[in-house]
Structures are given as C-alpha cells and as structure tokens.
C-alpha cells in the first residue's frame, strides 16, 4: 500500500475537501493504484537531470509601474455569494 486511510484524511484536510466514507474508501483504492503506477518513474536514473518547470525558455516579462485599472467594483462583486455593501462576507474568522 502506497497510501492508507489516514494519509487520505490528511491530504483531504490539506486540500479542504470533505470526503464521505465511501469517497474516502474509493480514494484509497484508486490513489493507491495510481501512485503504484507512478513508481514506474523510479526505474529512471535522474541524478544529474535538471528538472523542467517551464517547457519554453522564457524570462518573466516586466510591465511598467502604471495604474491602468479603474474601479469596476460592482461588476467584480456581482458573482459574490454573500456581500455586505462592497465587502465580501464570510463566516466569522477566529484566529
């Protein structure tokens, strides 16, 4: 087993996903199979191989420090599930 129910719960918590017991069980089976398959990569010696993060050779382009956006608050808040005036509203945050 590459991954068990405890790992699944830890990962689900990290990813903020509520899993039902059935989902949890199916996650264990399928992720275990997938991760086992991914072990095939270990057959390759990658000791001196550079990792590829970007497939094309680019530099981060820069833009000038200019304010180009104007307030468009109503349109930007139109999709909000809960608002309070021009604030987004969420359940109470406890530090």
């Amino acid at each position: 087993m590459k991954i068990g129910p405890d790992d699944i719960r830890t990962v689900a918590r990290l990813a903020r996903l509520n899993l039902t017991p059935e989902e949890e069980a199916s996650m264990v089976t399928t992720l275990d199979a997938i991760l086992t398959y991914m072990e095939t990569l270990n057959a390759l010696d990658t000791t001196d191989i550079e990792p590829t993060a970007h497939i094309i050779d680019l530099e981060t382009p820069w833009r000038a420090d200019e304010v180009t956006n104007e307030a468009n608050t109503e349109a930007l808040l139109a999709n909000a599930p809960a608002r309070d005036g021009n604030h987004f509203r969420v359940p109470k945050i406890i530090d």
Partner: peptide
C-alpha cells in the same frame, strides 16, 4: 479580513 463587524460574520476587502 475585517473581524467583529457583524456578530457572526467577517468581511473581506
């Protein structure tokens, strides 16, 4: 996050 604005919610700016 703006806390304590309304009893049971917080606001985000």
């Amino acid at each position: 996050n703006i806390h304590d604005a309304h009893g049971d919610s917080s606001l985000v700016d």
